[in-house]
Simulated scan of single mutants.
Amino acid sequence: MEYLIYCDESIKRGELYSNFYGGALVKSIYLNEVVNRLNRYKEEHFITGEMKWTKVTEPYLEKYTGLINLFFDLLAEDKLKMRVMFQPLKNQHHG
């Protein structure tokens, strides 16, 4: 079995962590279905380009929420897996 990994990152700094890395792992046997379902949703709702929560406007909130719900449906169906990794801030000690 082959996995395809889609990744993104954010370097926004928070109180404890920065450099967030997210990845979606898709089993190769489900790749076409996953891509088709996500793309179909985007086409039906006229979503183009990269989606970012920082760019959500009131009229687009329902569209974004619907796409995320679809993503979580795919997770529940075990068609993909999601991983988020965090890098601790340097020179910050806890405990």
Score class of each variant (00 low, 15 high):
60 Y>W: 07
25 L>S: 03
68 I>P: 08
28 S>K: 04
61 L>A: 07
31 L>S: 02
81 K>Y: 10
90 K>S: 09
67 L>A: 06
35 V>E: 06
23 G>P: 06
83 R>L: 02
56 V>W: 12
21 Y>C: 00
75 L>T: 04
14 G>M: 12
65 T>C: 05
15 E>P: 13
95 G>S: 11
92 Q>D: 15
3 Y>C: 00
95 G>Y: 12
44 E>G: 05
90 K>I: 04
71 F>L: 02
9 E>C: 00
71 F>G: 00
82 M>E: 05
25 L>P: 09
59 P>N: 06
41 Y>D: 06
88 P>I: 10
69 N>M: 08
86 F>V: 13
92 Q>M: 11
22 G>W: 01
73 D>Q: 11
33 E>T: 07
51 M>K: 13
59 P>R: 06
19 N>C: 10
64 Y>N: 01
8 D>A: 01
49 G>K: 07
22 G>F: 00
45 H>G: 08
20 F>C: 06
50 E>V: 07
50 E>L: 08
45 H>R: 14
34 V>C: 02
67 L>E: 11
83 R>M: 02
37 R>V: 01
85 M>L: 06
94 H>F: 15
59 P>I: 07
51 M>F: 09
85 M>W: 12
56 V>L: 08
67 L>T: 06
32 N>I: 04
8 D>I: 04
66 G>C: 08
76 A>Q: 15
9 E>V: 04
15 E>T: 11
65 T>E: 14
61 L>T: 13
19 N>R: 13
71 F>D: 06
44 E>W: 04
40 R>C: 00
2 E>A: 04
12 K>P: 07
28 S>F: 01
26 V>D: 08
62 E>L: 05
76 A>N: 15
42 K>Y: 04
21 Y>L: 00
14 G>F: 14
61 L>I: 07
81 K>T: 08
20 F>I: 09
79 K>L: 03
71 F>P: 09
65 T>W: 07
22 G>T: 05
30 Y>S: 03
18 S>D: 14
42 K>T: 03
61 L>W: 14
32 N>Y: 13
62 E>M: 10
17 Y>I: 01
87 Q>D: 13
67 L>W: 14
42 K>N: 10
80 L>S: 01
3 Y>P: 01
16 L>C: 00
3 Y>H: 02
76 A>I: 00
50 E>M: 10
67 L>Y: 12
67 L>I: 11
17 Y>K: 12
75 L>N: 03
66 G>N: 14
93 H>K: 14
86 F>R: 13
28 S>N: 12
8 D>K: 14
71 F>I: 10
69 N>Q: 09
44 E>Q: 08
4 L>P: 03
6 Y>H: 12
79 K>G: 03
29 I>C: 00
50 E>Q: 15
46 F>E: 13
79 K>I: 01
28 S>I: 03
47 I>P: 07
22 G>I: 02
72 F>K: 02
53 W>H: 06
73 D>C: 03
49 G>F: 12
68 I>V: 06
53 W>I: 15
93 H>Y: 15
90 K>R: 15
11 I>A: 00
78 D>F: 02
47 I>L: 06
27 K>A: 05
33 E>C: 02
70 L>P: 03
60 Y>N: 12
90 K>H: 11
57 T>C: 04
94 H>I: 10
92 Q>R: 13
49 G>S: 11
47 I>E: 08
91 N>D: 12
60 Y>T: 15
81 K>F: 07
7 C>A: 10
64 Y>V: 15
90 K>Y: 10
16 L>I: 07
57 T>Y: 11
1 M>E: 02
95 G>C: 01
79 K>P: 07
55 K>V: 10
